[in-house]
Design a protein around this nucleic acid. Sequence first.
DNA 1: TCCTCTAACACTTTTGAATCGC
DNA 2: AGCGATTCAAAAGTGTTAGAGG
Length: 375
Amino acid sequence: MQYVSDYNSNLSMSRAPPAPDSYKQGCIRMTLENADLWRSFDSIGTEMIIAKHGRRMFPHCSISLSGLQPFANYVIMVDMVPVDNYKYKWKKEQWEVAGKAEPQPMCRTYMHPDSPAQGSHWMKQSLSFLKMKLTNNTLDQHGHIILHSMHRYYPRFHVTQADSPYTVRWGPLQTFSFPETTFTAVTTYQNPKITKLKIDHNPFAKGFREGGTHSHSKRCRTNRSPPAKRAALDRKVFCNSPPGLQRMPSASQSVHAGKNQACTQQSLKGSDLSAWALEQDPSESLHAEALELDEYDGSCEEQMVPAPVSYQPYRSAEYTRFSLPSNDADAAQTPIHPPPHTLARAEHNAQQHGYHHHSYGADWSQYPLFSYSRW
DNA sequence: TCCTCTAACACTTTTGAATCGC
DNA sequence: AGCGATTCAAAAGTGTTAGAGG
């Protein structure tokens, strides 16, 4: 099952072809491709590892688009938006509020490496943001998206008609998000259920699923070889493995194959535009302010597709996703919260009876979409 | 003492260059 | 010569966990 973020139709879940006039700006439809996987994680409380040198997301963001003008050029981007103004900690098998959120680092936007491309290209197959990486290194020079660990975020997708990345800021912007993609950024996994789910679905984790490498005796640091030498040895051993084994389809590929959707991972290959990321130094607020979403005067609106009622195990009407403490003391005194994804669920509850654009308690316009001072 | 982060680990998958055959 | 398929080495990726550091 897939969720569709429909720019015009309220809570539309259909994947019907767009109406003849739907190619107009404002009729863009976005679908989260691996929604089932996302929901599996979201039901537990998705955690995303962030690392100093960048870490890919798993599940990764994969979307499909319709309603674009086939011969117009578009740029597709994604950025990460804080869910709320809290910092969390994992305690006693659940997430708790640990105080007020830390000041957000510079906001970066990841541009899909195919950008810009014609609408027909984007609609031809699903778009994968597999290569997007998350980091907690505020001094990162690789263009990875910078997040704070133990904070909650969700990816926000942007579609804009532009002939080049440098004209993006002048075009109308349409923004989409999916509730089930909300996650907690962590440096090491906290919830063992998440670990298990990731190992089950992520082919790269096979090395830890099999082979008994968890034995401490095998991991004794005192017997470690010099890294370079050790790495060379590892490669030699690896390269003796049967070639056929190396070419077995990955688990993730199998998942995608079942959807009759071509994964764009292959189209990324060799792209010169990979990791085209934009960032902003908060000190250069001039540009950020000029790009505040409010200033798009309605041409930039965000939509969120609610999860089905049956898929809200922790939902509680007492919590609203973007509710904020009136002051710091409130945050400090806040007792145990439900798992953070409950907050997202709560907002879905509010949306059950009708679509609404986001009205965040947190002023997310402080997280500018286009952020490069070079612009 | 508690909590968070980092780096090394073993293994798999992906990537791209080299090679081969038609 | 050109093209596609195959092979192989290297690089990049994964989660775990001890230890460092705040």
